[in-house]
Design a protein around this nucleic acid. Structure first.
Lengths: 279, 279
DNA sequence: CAATTAGTTGACATATGGACAACCACATTA
DNA sequence: TAATGTGGTTGTCCATATGTCAACTAATTG
């Protein structure tokens, strides 16, 4: 089958290039650089960027002539489900942060990855920059597990088949804050959800039993706790998570889990979820 | 001159269609409807949407098969200047809201319009839904004036020439919450910044003198106050605004202006603006 | 379950984008 | 200030990617 949209696919790479870490940190990149990144003719890129600019999807700095993702992107993004959720979650996350004195996140599952859509930082947090907009591998994060635990066994099998081996990050793509050291094969293996589907399902069963998920594989020295958020149809649409350093947390993992779980339940009822116990 | 990007331009209209109020309120629209909105062949639209989905720029609801703006949109939007500003402004806006007990906004000027990038709602606000992502005509909003007042006379002239007569809203586009009654010519005339450039510049001079801008033309019965936010190069990048109903405000307009102005100054110094008086 | 509507896929003619090159603007250096 | 280099824009020609149309399948409705 011919896709019939080869040109569009190519042009979307231009947008990806502008969303790259490079463009982001430099505050924009020029026509020549985009052409280089996308391996296309600079003349064509010049024209493509011009039409993208006309829609506001990319902005151009008048002085430096460099392009970056545009205001329209921000504007339109407010019309996504993600933005809606983020808005509704804000106050509940703030409550949780006040309770635990740690930064809290709202995450959703998208394909094989977890997307952080809202971060509320604790007052004394070291890193003020949030993870908003960052994609992480789902299987090894507490949030990913919390959400996946809400699926049926057959759905989980399907997910496992499709995504268990997803690479840490897609194509040109948006990278995580600290782009990480050269791929250490050991670390890399650890970044798989579990050895086998069986093992993974067992892990998810534990999550169901407790009502929250735990992960210490995602970031060295950090324990994450996450609990599922349900909507009015009682299906899991997101997860609230909190990460705490191991030493600070001590043996209070369960307490943290309970608090996160309670916050997730409050948000769920905000969203109109039926007020029955977990499940 | 041939644009050489006709196809892309057409395909972008598909995205616009998905950002329309219709798609938004219905929680997604199908292939046929998008084809109708964009006046294109449904076969082609089917293919276009498929490639857009592959990048995550649009999401498809598995059950209903309807498309909507995708998670990648949200993710990428966090890489815009607007998102950065919004993040930094959050706490300052919250302070201001605590002081004045009214909903506060952060706005930027984009072309002839003001884009609201962050809303912090007051506890007792009637409408909980924010204006985030909404575009409004710049000349008649307090924020627009506050920002424009930061430009030089020649820049203002240029702006006036280009945008003074901009239509309320662009093409297919993102509409405002209440799409407004059928265009009343009287209202419509009122929606121009001022009769003449001279008059407009005089208005802006007043803004400079006071340090904040006032507008009562934007929404019936509401007085908006706005003050400019400057970055480390001391150029105006945004405005903080607060709207209060006329009766609630009484004769305290100036006090409100002062508070808004103070909040804007705090945010400016957060952004690294030199700590000199207003301009 | 027939009838209607929504979505997908195939094939051909033609509009469109890629390649290349000339050109402009601006900065850097000799 | 001429010379060189870098980044960006625009024109033209031709291969090819896309629009058109139609047949088809899949879902939805009465």
């Amino acid at each position: 089958m011919r896709t019939h949209t080869a040109g569009l696919a190519r042009d979307l790479e231009v947008i990806e290039a502008l969303a790259s870490a490079e463009a982001f940190t430099l505050g924009g990149i020029g026509v020549a650089r985009v052409a280089e990144l996308t391996k296309r003719d600079k003349g064509q890129i010049s024209r493509v960027l011009k039409t993208l600019e006309a829609t506001g999807l990319v902005d151009r700095d008048k002085a430096t002539r460099k392009y970056s993702l545009g205001h329209r992107f921000y504007s339109m993004s407010m019309r996504t489900r993600e933005a809606h959720l983020a808005l509704q979650a804000e106050s509940r996350l703030a409550e949780l942060v006040a309770q635990v004195q740690e930064t809290a996140h709202l995450n959703v599952l998208r394909g094989g990855r977890v997307l952080t859509i809202k971060t509320v930082v604790a007052a004394d947090a070291v890193r003020r920059s949030g993870w908003d907009g960052v994609l992480s591998n789902a299987g090894i994060t507490a949030s990913g597990r919390a959400i996946l635990a809400g699926l049926t066994d057959s759905e989980i099998e399907l997910w496992w088949a499709e995504h268990a081996l997803d690479d840490p990050l897609p194509l040109l793509s948006i990278d995580m804050p600290e782009p990480a050291e050269p791929i250490n094969p050991k670390t890399r293996r650890a970044r798989r959800p579990a050895r086998s589907l069986k093992q993974f399902e067992k892990m998810l069963q534990e999550v169901r039993d407790k009502g929250y998920a735990i992960s210490d594989e995602f970031q060295e020295g950090i324990v994450d706790a996450a609990a599922p958020v349900r909507d009015s149809s009682n299906i899991v649409v997101a997860a609230i998570s909190v990460g705490a350093s191991i030493e600070r947390l001590g043996d209070q993992t369960d307490q943290l889990g309970q608090l996160v779980s309670a916050a997730a339940l409050r948000l769920s009822t905000d969203l109109g979820a039926p007020i029955i116990g977990p499940a």
